[in-house]
């Protein structure tokens, strides 16, 4: 595994990450090995975040660098992608276009070994349902930064239930104004205050 790539990812050295990925590809290193190195670098990012050496701004940067690098390899979240811990589906609820929190969570989940299906922002209920049917995740995440979209989360969760898809599925919510009262109101299973909590909750639920 390329120590140079791991360190560059951990240090958020974008130029070095990109050039090293290109070098490794040209040397015929398998994409999965390169992804593994990027993920190891991201683990260090996560550790530095926990130790308060890094902050949310660094997580945002790491998410973008990781995605940029993995795009050179065809992406890590495509259909049929493999993962250690199963699939995590996430999007920002409809009528809300905030993406920063969602991007942080999806990248941190991806770098922690989950196959992530990122539905984007302003996601309608039908799209969540379609993704749950297609990918059969054990955990999904709904991001929301607007109190006016709380009813949309509630409707979405009720529709998932009506479609008979709630069994064994945990629904996590997160975002600035979201708290325990919101969780109770919309009928979600848990509020995640940050990306790391999403990782920990999901791993615990999946028995990892």
């Amino acid at each position: 595994m390329s120590k140079k790539l791991i360190d560059a990812m951990a240090d958020l050295d974008e130029d070095l990450v990109i050039s090293e990925v290109k070098t490794l590809v040209s040397q015929g290193v398998p994409a999965l090995d390169i992804i593994a190195a990027l993920q190891e670098g991201m683990s260090t990012v996560g550790k530095r975040f926990e130790e308060k050496e890094y902050f949310l701004s660094e997580l945002i940067m790491s998410a973008e660098i990781f995605n940029e690098a993995s795009q050179l390899l065809g992406g890590v979240g495509g259909e049929g992608a493999t993962s250690k811990y199963g699939t995590f589906v996430m999007g920002t609820i409809y009528d809300d276009i905030h993406d920063i929190g969602k991007n942080i969570v999806t990248t941190v989940m991806s770098s922690n070994g989950f196959h992530v299906v990122d539905l984007g922002v302003d996601v309608p209920t039908a799209k969540y349902i379609e993704a749950i049917k297609q990918y059969q995740p054990k955990v999904i995440g709904i991001s929301c930064l607007l109190t006016t979209a709380f009813d949309n989360i509630k409707e979405c969760i009720q529709s998932i239930e009506k479609a008979g898809l709630r069994k064994d599925l945990k629904i996590l919510i997160g975002g600035g104004p979201v708290d325990e009262a919101t969780c109770k109101y919309v009928g979600a299973d848990h509020v995640c205050k940050n990306a790391q909590e999403t990782v920990e909750y999901s791993k615990k639920y999946m028995g990892v």
Binding site: T147, P177, D179, A181, T182
Partner: peptide
């Protein structure tokens, strides 16, 4: 006061 509380909480909360 948490803004979410005004939207989904009760008057007592």
């Amino acid at each position: 006061i948490p803004p979410g509380l005004l939207a989904v909480g009760t008057p007592d909360d």
